[in-house]
Amino acid sequence: MRDLMNLMGKAKEMQAKLQAMQEEIAQMEVEGQSAAGAVKVTLTGKFDMKKLEIDPSLFKEDDVEILEDLILAAHNDAKVKVEEAMQKKSQEMTAGLPLPPGMKLPF
């Protein structure tokens, strides 16, 4: 019975840590870029685009498709960074827990 109470206490503690981590991730902002920084996208931890910066030198009528591709590349770069940060935070939180390999916590 004592083990069950201990396990329930740890589960409650883990739940509180998970909630705090989710709030921390939601508050973070990550910048992705393409074309050596000529296009920059800032995403929140919830993948909401917060900011888009485009160097004025990229505004040419015949290069619209290139600019669109650069925006997508910057967005994807920021998305990967958010996902990496989320993974790092969850690994820090679950360090020492006997979770099966590849198990992801719900976000």
Rank of each mutant, 00 (worst) to 15 (best):
R2D: 12
D3G: 02
D3T: 08
D3L: 12
D3C: 01
D3W: 07
L4Y: 06
L4S: 11
M5L: 14
N6C: 00
M8F: 11
M8T: 07
K10Y: 04
E13D: 15
Q15C: 08
Q15F: 07
A16D: 09
A16H: 01
A16P: 00
K17L: 12
K17Y: 01
K17W: 01
L18N: 03
L18M: 12
A20I: 03
M21A: 14
M21H: 02
M21C: 11
Q22R: 13
Q22W: 00
E24S: 09
E24Q: 13
E24N: 10
I25S: 03
I25F: 02
A26E: 05
A26G: 03
A26Q: 03
M28A: 10
M28N: 04
M28W: 02
M28E: 08
M28Y: 05
E29L: 10
V30W: 03
V30K: 15
V30N: 00
V30A: 09
Q33R: 12
Q33W: 05
Q33K: 10
Q33V: 05
S34K: 05
S34R: 03
A35Q: 08
A36P: 00
A36L: 07
V39R: 06
V39Y: 05
V41P: 00
V41N: 04
T42P: 01
L43W: 03
L43C: 12
T44M: 04
T44A: 15
G45H: 00
F47A: 09
D48H: 14
